[in-house]
Amino acid sequence: MRKRVSYTHRTLPTLAILEFKRAHDIRGCGEVLRFRKIGDHLKLYQTWFCHKRLCPLCNWRKSMKNSSQLKQIIAEAVAREPKGRFLFLTLTVKNAHSAEELKVSLRALTKAFNKLTRYKKVTKNLLGYLRSTEITVNEQDGSYNQHLHVLL
């Protein structure tokens, strides 16, 4: 059984703005989905994805995988340290207005976070952390807002 999924009309303008060189790879991502009937349900058994960083379909699949893995990690952390507490920390810096400025700013942000985790009081009380970098674009002035989300 074949099912065609079309989402290119939404993604290609975004990719054109970003001047993404491999937009043609993303266009065909996940177009062919083959299912097998198992009992009363259909199960996806074969498909082809592009695995590109800016592909919305591949990023959605990656986020689903990461979410599942995070649930397992948190469950294991709670089992090992039942008295442990979680803290959600967001660290941000001033917006960057160019790609080079963004690169420098991200390096500084990462370096500062690594330095924070090496402080004696932090290492004494910290069981572990999960860090994620997020970059959003301000549509009014085109600047980049970079920040770290950290689960401590």
Rank of each mutant, 00 (worst) to 15 (best):
G128M: 04
K115V: 13
A108S: 08
T117F: 04
A96G: 01
L102W: 03
L116V: 14
F113V: 08
Y119Q: 13
N114F: 02
Y129Q: 03
L127M: 15
K103H: 12
A96I: 05
Y129I: 03
K115N: 14
K124Q: 14
N114S: 08
K111S: 14
E134I: 10
N138C: 15
S132L: 05
Q140Y: 04
L109D: 01
N95R: 04
V137R: 15
V104A: 12
I135G: 06
S98A: 00
D141W: 01
S143R: 04
L130N: 05
K115C: 12
N125R: 09
E134H: 13
T136G: 04
L130W: 05
L106A: 07
K120P: 02
T110Q: 15
T136P: 02
R118G: 03
V104I: 15
T110V: 06
I135L: 05
K103L: 08
K121F: 11
L127C: 13
R118Y: 13
A96W: 02
A99Q: 08
L126H: 03
V137I: 11
K103M: 08
N95V: 06
V137P: 02
V137Q: 13
E139S: 07
N95L: 08
K115T: 14
L127A: 10
R131V: 15
D141M: 04
V137C: 04
N114D: 09
N138A: 13
L106S: 06
V122G: 09
K111I: 08
A112E: 11
N95G: 04
G128H: 08
T123V: 12
V122C: 10
T117D: 08
H97F: 15
A99K: 05
R131A: 08
V122A: 08
E139F: 06
K124Y: 15
L130D: 03
S98D: 05
E101G: 06
T123L: 12
V137E: 07
R131H: 03
K111W: 10
R118T: 11
L109M: 02
V122T: 12
Y119C: 11
Y119E: 12
K111N: 12
Y119H: 14
K103R: 07
E101I: 00
S98F: 01
K115P: 03
K111P: 06
S143V: 04
D141P: 00
K121P: 07
V104R: 11
A99T: 12
S105Q: 14
T136S: 02
L130Q: 06
T136M: 06
V137D: 06
L127P: 09
K111F: 04
A112P: 03
S143D: 02
Y129M: 01
A96N: 02
K111H: 11
R131K: 14
I135K: 06
F113T: 08
L109S: 01
A112Y: 08
A112L: 13
T110Y: 09
Y119W: 14
Y119S: 11
